[in-house]
Design a protein around this nucleic acid. Sequence first.
RNA 1: GCCGAGUUGGCGGAAUGGUAGACGCGACGGUCUCAAAAACCGUUGUCCGAAAGGGCGUGCGGGUUCGAGUCCCGCACUCGGCACCA
Length: 954
Amino acid sequence: MSTPDETPASYRYTSELAGDIERRWQDRWDAEGTFEAPNPTGDLAADDPEAGALGDKYFIMDMFPYPSGAGLHVGHPLGYIATDVVGRYRRMQGDNVLHALGYDAFGLPAEIHAVQTGEHPRTNTLANMDNMRRQLRRLGLAHDPRRSFATIDPDFVRWTQWIFIQIFESWYDEDQQRARPISELRDEYESGLRTAPDGAAWSELGPIERRILIDSRRLAYVDESPVNWCPGLGTVLANEEVTAEGRSERGNFPVFTRNLRQWKMRITAYSDRLIDDLERVDWPDSVKNMQRNWIGRSHGARVRFDVPTAGRSFDVFTTRPDTLFGATYAVLAPEHELVESLVAEAWPEGTPRAWTNGVETPAEAIASYRAAAAAKTDLERQGGVDGAGREKTGVFTGSYAVNPVNGEEVPVFIADYVLTGYGTGAIMAVPGGDQRDWEFAQAYGLPIVRTVEPPEGTEGAYPGEGPAINSAHTSADGSVLDINGLAVAEAKTAVVEWLQQHGAGEGTTTYRLRDWLFSRQRYWGEPFPIVYDESDQPIAVPDHMLPVELPDVPDYSPKTYEPDDVESNPEPPLARADEWVHVTLDLGDGPRQYRRETNTMPNWAGSSWYELRYTDPHNSERLADPENERYWLGPRTEGDTGGVDLYVGGVEHAVLHLLYARFWHKVLFDLGHVSSEEPFHRLVNQGYIQAYAYVDERGVHVPADEVEERDGAFLHGDRPVTREYGKMGKSLKNVVTPDDMYSAYGADTFRVYEMSMGPLEVSRPWETRAVVGSQRFLQRVWRLLVDEDSGDLRVDDAELDAATLHVLHTTIDGVRADMQHLRFNTAIAKLIELTNHLTKAGVSSRAAVEPLVLMLAPLAPHVAEELWSRLGHDASLIREPFPVADPAHLAAASVTCVIQVLGKVRGKIEVDPSIGDDELQALALAEPNVVRSIDGRELRKVIVKAPKLVSIVV
RNA sequence: GCCGAGUUGGCGGAAUGGUAGACGCGACGGUCUCAAAAACCGUUGUCCGAAAGGGCGUGCGGGUUCGAGUCCCGCACUCGGCACCA
């Protein structure tokens, strides 16, 4: 039992006191609308809008969270705290800061929960959002609460669907390199300015043919083509959602390539702009590289190979037209559309048995090879995760094609090492220059011709640089192509030129990127604003009928199948909602029967445009008023892309969300709906907070907080356990929540600790026992200002001594620089040094502690506000100017000069900062230990960098 | 295989080409206390030395420089992305 005289100081900065302070200030901020950012126009405009009164803007965004049922662990807020520190710092610079947080609330976990419980996914999602809001509010984030939203809000869905319609109602004009309204394409067809790809005139087409022609050009279109079908999930998936192992990113089910009729978005039209505009944004190189890689632009040539016996030709794509003389056979992907027309009636005389797979006729051999390829998962087809050493298989078509540069007849194979969908789905095979072709040639006894001189001792294919060899031919018409001796680059140019002149090919560019598969067979997503009429062609739902809301259904799951059931077909849950699917609508020509699209959008839809909605979250006329969009996102200088000033989030979205959002934003830019060309101007990837987990000898995880470290060993009770490093998660029993930190230390300590652990971009392990260091720091600051026993203010108005002035102003200078560059860890270190100096010097002067409190405010806002108010200020410090260093106090009274002899430090002397070179050299040479080190040797060179360094060479 | 990032004490991490290890955790010693906790003060890369001082030290091997964690060349390892992409 404690007695009164044992009671600890009642005004110590404990977790209880911190909690009281934090809750009090959070309530006050809410009540006063402290973080509301005024808009130029609309419902969030300032009450007394003077022209230009808003000041400079700064728009900060976090990658918004998915409201998971598990709630937050201490890793989640890292980025939110960092952006909050920046926002608070910018406010103290006088900026109008837009910072808010919404919720990315459609998605699979809620749907799975709904399937299991029968509860509508909205119910559970809203409950999860409430819990997250509570956890985040306690952090004291300076968000404008009026601008929060969730992607499932009917108002938000309305504009997601509206954007879909914009994309649906537009086409990509390759000449102008931009999207244009589809009506302008129709006009061009009608006026004869443009003809259909097959040359048919508009006037000759029937109404349905016209619609099909137009529909085929839309940026959002329905298409039957190979897609990733995942029977285990019952849905199709985008390429970006399939792992390298050919499985679904969610659930890890096998994925099969199937021809299915699905919605796609023509993101490939933007390939060049998506690559080129990366130069114009301030993003980490790693993310830029991942996007470049993913889009996969490669320059090369398209070469036409004629097949005289079939009266057909096919194009191949190659990045190495210089090796064309070494093309000794050609390969088509098994799915290539020309395969059937190239298959010979019978095997030519003398066909090697290996080429036929022992089958009687080419048709049968091809059919069985194609069937076998179709039944394989992508992984099986690739023969393993590692590309090396995959066994090459294929079968001869029975036909020969003509190599255009030398007239040689080369056999045409199909083989599954050639992929449909990349390039032209057909290759010229150059075994001398490509390892895969080499392996195939070895297996099938095909000739190998080297066309680049390999280094001595080369075995196998040589894909490198070198002079061209074996590469000359004189055609029947007497024209000569001779590239022997040329280096690769020149040889490429020469061959492409020759191909162009002879109508046999041309230089071209291909991309790895495929169009974005946009439909999902799920319930919990945005319905498509699309209906079909009796001709089965899609029609956009008119704007005034938006949003198209999800119907209530008894069963939220799509039909799922055995994970490896290749023959299964997608069946979305909405297809079973008969009354919703079949509707009577008046689309301008009287009430008619229509059928609704029953797929839903992928959960990337909402995050593809949410940056826009923050700027004008309640606008019911537009997705954002142009004036508001221009103010917050518009370009600020000539050539600037515009976009969010700072976007912080995990690197896991490098090629998913960030690519999709850029694509949508560019479409909206082309169509004139936004003034910015890129959504996010500056991107920072925060690291992950990781954690140790412990496994006992049975391989079972034990609670991490019960493990003790003794003599380098880890023990759970008396049982030894082994340590693993990785994620924080329930199953690993190593979760630490923000709530744990709030109650043990308070939100400010938690914030300071997370920011002090290391650079924002770096992943690091969580260590709860180190948090106390940040608490001690805040306690020392508190103690500088407040008497722990009486609670009285200890601050006086004494003048600062020179040493304190110097420390104070170098700290201000350094902290400002660190804040500018998001180096919060070193900013905190400097604030700790200042605090320790003041503590040691016994200084509690207002002239020192006021700047300290202001500098602390972005990092530990609650305790800073509390101290600021105790210092006698009535108003919040949120817009108080951040301290500015006085250059007069940046120079120290004395400087430590380092004296090196032969590059080694041999002495240190304290000198006046304004000391001259000659005087300093004399002092240095007189220093006893320096004299001893020189040991009478002759001075060959003395480098003096006054006042910090003298370097002596003997 | 290709592309990118990284490798510094027991741990997290600091260092415009100029004192390597700021700041914090931990550990050790001390003050206060009957005692403990908290708080506060001090020590803490390593080896030799009583000390003064000296040797070694930023993944490895070279180089540039009066001087290299930092710049250049080569290599190893770790992490991330892509990958039968022609």
